[in-house]
Design a protein around this nucleic acid. Sequence first.
DNA 1: CCTACCGATCGGTAGG
DNA 2: CCTACCGATCGGTAGG
Lengths: 191, 191
Amino acid sequence: MAVATTSKKQNIINIAAGLFRKNGYKATSIRDLAAAVGIEPSSIYSHVSSKEEILAEICLDSARRFSEGMDKTEKTFKSPADKLHALIQLHLEIAYVFPGSIVVFNGEWKHLPDDRLKEFITSRKNYETRFKSILEAGKNQGVFTFDNAEIVFNIIIQSLTWPYEVSRKYGKAALQTELTNFIMRSLNKNP
Amino acid sequence: MAVATTSKKQNIINIAAGLFRKNGYKATSIRDLAAAVGIEPSSIYSHVSSKEEILAEICLDSARRFSEGMDKTEKTFKSPADKLHALIQLHLEIAYVFPGSIVVFNGEWKHLPDDRLKEFITSRKNYETRFKSILEAGKNQGVFTFDNAEIVFNIIIQSLTWPYEVSRKYGKAALQTELTNFIMRSLNKNP
DNA sequence: CCTACCGATCGGTAGG
DNA sequence: CCTACCGATCGGTAGG
C-alpha cells in the first residue's frame, strides 16, 4: 500500500477548487464535481457535508496560508522594505501553488454561509491590519512615501491579484521581478 | 407625460447590473430581478430575450465605454505620460458612474454565450494593444521604465480594478490621487 | 460508494 | 404586463 499523500476529501476539495476557479462556485454543480472526481453525485456527501462546506474549506485554507505567511514574515525580517518584499513573494507563491487561492481572489467567498463568512472576513481584516502596520512603519522611518495606508494596501493587494490564465502566461520569476520593481519603486522615498 | 430618461429595458439592465455585481450572475435569478424591478418574472421577457442577453448588454456596454475613452485619450493627449494619466482617470470614472463595469471587473463575462464572448474578448484585446502602445512609446522616449509591457499593463489594470465596496469607502478624488502617484512614480524613469 | 429519489428552484413559453 | 405552466436541473437524503 502506498502512503496516502492526500485524503480523498482533500482530493475532492482540490478538484472543486479548480472547477470553482474556472466556472465559478454557483455555476459548478455537485454533478459536475462528481464527474470530475469520477464518482456518482451522491457519493460526494460521503466526504463533505455540503457544497458550502467545500467552499468554506477552500476559503479558510487560503486565509490560513496568508496568516501563516504573515507570521513568518514578521518573525524573519526587520525592515519594512524586506517585509514588503517577502509579502509580494508570499502572494505569488500562494497563487502559484494553491489553486484555491484564486477562488478567493475571484470573490467567491461572498457565497459563504454567515458564520464562515464572518470567520473569513475577520481573518482578512487581521491580515490587512498587519500589512498596513508594515506600510506605516516604513513611512515613519522615512523609507516609504504615500498618503493613505489603507488605499495603498488595497492598490498593492489588487496589483498582486491576477486572473489565473493571465498570470500563467509569464513565468513566476518574471512576474515577481516586475511586480517587486513596480511596487517598491512606487513607495521608495529616496530613489 | 414626462420625457423618458431611460427606457424600461435599460432600467431593467441597470437593476440587473446592481444584482449581478452584488450576488453574481449565476446567483441572480430572473425572479430576483423581477422582484427588484417590481414586475412578475415572465414580464422580464417582454423587454429582453434572455438572461444571457442582459449580461451581454452590460459587458459590451462597458467595453464600448472603454473603447470610446481610449479614442478620446489618443486624440486629446500627445505625451505617453498625459495619456496614461487620462486612462487612470477613465478607469475610475467608468467604475464610479457605471455599475455594470464592476460586473465586468468581477469576471462575470465568462458566462457570456460563445458569440458574445468572442466579441467581448476582441474588444478587450484591442484595448490592451492600444494601452501597451502608450507604455512602449513612453519607454522608447525614455520617460517610462519597465521590462515587460504586457506584464506592466496587467499590473496597472489590476491596480485600477477594485472591489466595489472597498472603492466606495474613499472619495474618488483620494483614490485618483493615490493611484496616479503610485503608478506614475513606478514608471517614471527620472524622478 | 451506489441506486433511487425528493422538493425546490431554475430559465423560459403560451396565451391572453 | 399577468396567470398558468413546463421540462430541466439543482443540492441533498434514504437506505443499503
